[in-house]
């Protein structure tokens, strides 16, 4: 950087460069369509825009009937998981400029859950398997009636799996889950892992028994699609492998 630039008076605000991206969205209106159809949209975008901004622009300026879920728009609520260019991503965490904008951007709903409309799927089967693994602390009264102590090392043991936001990107990227909706799916196992390896929890045996089921961890075929899809960077397949080992050993 040269100092000469700093001496100059800042010029009038320059026009922020924009570019046009083509989004091809897989639309489905259950009242009209028998099968989903692909629809093209050209959107004018800034380099700072994310796929979610492009969807907003389409919904607000071009076609108000476009339907998708989003809440916080900052990668925390887990509402806007969708398949972007064939891979599960959060629309709010995917910058358009990181995609190849010389080609159209394909956006479609996540796979394996019943499609309701456009980019919205029925999440109930997903949350049902989440509920089945008892996603809450199972512990009796504390000794002495005070706090449950945990060392930093014990906390670090399950730190990775505390980051889950239940967006279903992992579960709906799993080839086993697509063909067998009964499989618990990576998200449920990740959230079981979070409690199984928590030193304060006393219900790990219950959870290990649940996941030792025919539709439990043994359905995992280590395709690593879930690890790739996770917007929080959780090592999902690794966590499933740890649960498998805990079941074999009979203890976490």
């Amino acid at each position: 950087m040269s100092t000469a630039v700093a001496d100059k008076k800042p010029a009038a605000a320059e026009e922020i460069p924009t570019f046009t991206a083509t989004l091809i969205i897989r639309r489905f209106d259950p009242d009209v369509d028998e099968e989903p159809r692909w629809e093209d949209f050209d959107v004018e975008l800034y380099a700072t825009d994310r796929v979610l901004d492009a969807l907003h622009k389409i919904k607000w300026e071009q076609d108000g009937s476009l339907t998708f879920r989003r809440s916080c728009a900052h990668g925390i609520c887990g509402s806007d998981a969708m398949r972007i260019n064939g891979r599960n991503r959060l629309a709010c965490k995917t910058l358009i400029k990181d995609l190849d904008i010389t080609k159209p951007i394909y956006v479609e709903a996540i796979k394996g859950l019943p499609l309701e409309k456009d980019l919205i799927v029925d999440m109930e089967p997903f949350f049902d398997s989440y509920k089945e693994i008892n996603p809450f602390l199972m512990a009796g009264a504390t000794k002495g009636g005070k706090e449950r102590k945990q060392s930093p090392v014990e906390r670090a043991r399950f730190d990775d799996t505390t980051k889950c936001i239940l967006c279903a990107a992992c579960t709906s990227s799993c080839p086993v889950f697509w063909t067998d909706g009964q499989y618990f799916g990576p998200a449920a196992i990740v959230n079981a892992h979070r409690f199984i390896f928590d030193s304060r929890d006393e219900g790990s045996q219950v959870r290990l028994d649940i996941l030792n089921d025919k539709e439990g961890v043994w359905r995992c075929r280590t395709t690593f699609n879930c690890t790739d899809a996770c917007p929080r960077g959780i090592q999902v397949t690794q966590a499933i492998a740890e649960v498998k080992q805990a079941i074999i050993k009979g203890k976490p």
């Binding site: 897989r26 891979r87 599960n88 796979k111 080839p175 697509w178 690593f224 699609n225 397949t237």
Partner: peptide, 10 residues
């Protein structure tokens, strides 16, 4: 369904 673009693992 449409094709999921998985990586080496898939």
């Amino acid at each position: 369904g449409t094709l999921y673009r998985g990586n080496e693992g898939m």
